[in-house]
């Protein structure tokens, strides 16, 4: 069964870039996109989501808040915060909600650690 990844970013370009980087690592994974935290929460109702890539810098609700809510709903889901805001403070906040931190711009190299970790986690969860 294929893995489904939700990419949450208010920038379409950022979603394209992230999807592309992800596609290079895991061509078979399904991708669903959300342009805001609210959209992400809706998607979660209707779609199967195994992994979440969440942009930090979004209007209304920022990525860390969304990640915290996701974590509350899905304690085992691999979540990564994606942002160019590489402040130590943000990184530690990401850790607090149990999310990985990936600096923008997203490259497949930067993503590879998180993706392979997530793949392993999903396999072991199924097993």
């Amino acid at each position: 069964m294929s893995v489904s990844v939700m990419i949450v970013d208010d920038s379409k370009l950022a979603r394209i870039v992230a999807a592309k980087a992800l596609g290079q690592l895991q061509p078979d994974w399904q991708k669903v996109e959300a342009g805001s935290a609210a959209q992400a929460l809706e998607l979660l109702e209707t779609e199967k989501v195994d992994v979440a890539l969440v942009d930090f810098n979004m209007s209304e609700k920022n990525g860390l808040e969304l990640a915290a809510e996701l974590r509350a709903m899905r304690p085992d889901m691999p979540i990564a915060i994606i942002t160019a805001n590489i402040q130590d403070e943000i990184i530690s906040q990401a850790r607090e909600v149990g999310a990985a931190f990936i600096a923008k711009p997203v490259t497949s190299e930067a993503l590879s650690g998180f993706v392979s970790g997530a793949a392993l986690k999903l396999r072991t969860a199924k097993a």
Binding site: S11, L13, T83, A84, N85, E89, I90
Partner: peptide, 20 residues
Amino acid sequence: EALAETGNVILNSCLATMAN
């Protein structure tokens, strides 16, 4: 939208590094 994202990445990395 692309301009906004580009600016976001560049300015954020610059400012965040300075903050760090």
